[in-house]
Design a protein around this nucleic acid. Structure first.
Lengths: 106, 106
DNA sequence: AAGAATACTTCGTGATATGATGTATTACAC
DNA sequence: GTGTAATACATCATATCACGAAGTATTCTT
């Protein structure tokens, strides 16, 4: 998919992936894969950004001798998803502008 | 609207505004305004980019002593709009992932 | 023993929306 | 007739962000 089109989608996508159950990097990538490709470098950048923004919290857990960082969504994170849904109406209006026949001369 | 969400929408928005009738900067801004805010600096950046990409052509016309640059869409530009429509299916899948209840544990 | 899978990190790069600022003309209100 | 808004386009610096590349380290599979 076009990179620009993904922007604004990825953040909420990641938040959705941890919404109902705490999750960690590798699992998030796999959960999101059916919907959109998400590289590790991209994901960890996003996770860091969301953490800084207070939309999720992190805790480190040892699992089979390996460290895993589990991410949990916060109230701000849930709110972010709701904001996204509200903004989607505007997005759909743009989409309809683009897809309707006639363009601007009507 | 969230800036990130607009990315990937603006280019096709501008192309749509000139799709059925050649147009110029100021008019494009007014035509697109009902759907999304678009500043001059942003628009002229986009127009330059689309021109470089061969998606539109420019011609300068004198109008009341002032110069106007009229933009006309090319076949590549029309194709760009079609590509956008195709990609929209993926966007909607992401949207449904975000809005469906249940998150990842199902 | 070797390679794939798991798991996270860091760095540099390119694309891009936007505010600020500038230039220049025309239309209009007072 | 003067000032202000509207028309019209241009440029620059900045901040945000997705991504590939490369790295570290462990476990599982064959």
């Amino acid at each position: 998919m076009d990179i620009q089109l993904k922007r604004g989608l990825l953040d909420v996508c990641v938040l959705t992936a941890i919404k109902n159950e705490d999750s960690y990097g590798y699992k998030i990538i796999k959960d999101v894969k059916p919907y959109t490709e998400l590289s590790e470098s991209t994901l960890y950048t996003i996770l860091k950004r969301l953490e800084t923004a207070g939309m999720l919290t992190v805790r480190t857990v040892e699992h089979d001798g390996r460290l895993r960082k589990y991410y949990r969504i916060t109230d701000e994170g849930l709110e972010r998803i709701e904001e996204f849904k509200k903004e989607w109406k505007e997005v759909m209006q743009i989409y309809q502008f683009v897809t309707k026949e006639g363009g601007c001369n009507d």
